[in-house]
């Protein structure tokens, strides 16, 4: 997603000028995506160039120009609502890559990597839970949007802890030799593998 879709979604409700688009966008996304006004005006200029928005009359007393959707813009945003989010384009998850590397790297205490991350994620989950209990008690116009964003972060953090639990239990069932044997690209590791197979099971901890 880009700022473009966000602005089109807001303009589908009513015409707005740049500063208001910015404040509405931030309020409705729970402050998780801060924008600067320059970004908003640059995007509006591109949308106007592409025929998706148009100015409503001239500037007001304060020199602000409101924009509204064109038919093409309305069609663009309606199509966006119903198009699934493309997960292939999301950035790679550093944690996944870190653990994938950890289980295949010599000398890394994978269990400790998992534990350290789980503790940090649980702290995050706890902080989000506190925010959520606070948000529920203070209903205002944007409370629902704020709650939805918080819930998304809660679910993501919870899923991460569950995945880390799963990683830990999978590691617990794997003989340490299998972990070290995974380093197929490392000839030293391959040499080590037979010795590791006869070593004690406490090699990982």
């Amino acid at each position: 997603m880009s700022v473009k879709q966000g602005l089109l979604a807001l303009l589908a409700e009513e015409p707005m000028y740049g500063a208001r688009l910015r404040s509405e966008f931030e309020a409705r996304t729970g402050g998780t995506w801060p924008l600067n006004v320059g970004q908003v005006y640059t995007t509006l200029a591109r949308l106007e160039r592409d025929g998706l928005v148009e100015p409503v009359g001239g500037s007001d007393d304060e020199g602000r120009i409101a924009y509204r959707l064109t038919e093409a813009g309305r069609s663009e945003i309606e199509s966006w609502w119903l198009t699934p989010v493309d997960r292939d384009s999301t950035p790679r998850d550093e944690l996944v890559i870190k653990l994938a590397l950890a289980v295949t790297s010599p000398g890394v205490d994978v269990q400790r990597v998992v534990q350290t991350q789980r503790t940090a994620t649980l702290k995050h989950l706890r902080d989000l839970t506190r925010l959520k209990s606070r948000a529920s008690d203070e209903p205002d116009a944007h409370d629902l949007a704020w709650l939805l964003v918080l819930e998304n972060l809660l679910f993501a953090a919870e899923a991460e802890v569950r995945w880390l639990d799963h990683v830990e239990s999978t590691l617990g069932r794997m003989p340490s030799a299998a972990l070290r044997g995974a380093r197929a690209a490392d000839p030293v590791a391959e040499d080590d593998a037979p010795r590791a197979a006869t070593a004690s099971k406490g090699g990982r901890s």
Partner: peptide, 19 residues
């Protein structure tokens, strides 16, 4: 984890040891 998140602190145990 979602339930533990209501607590002020979370203590982890493994093999009988607080880790």
């Amino acid at each position: 984890a979602r339930h533990a998140a209501w607590a002020d602190r979370v203590v982890f145990l493994r093999d009988g040891i607080i880790v």
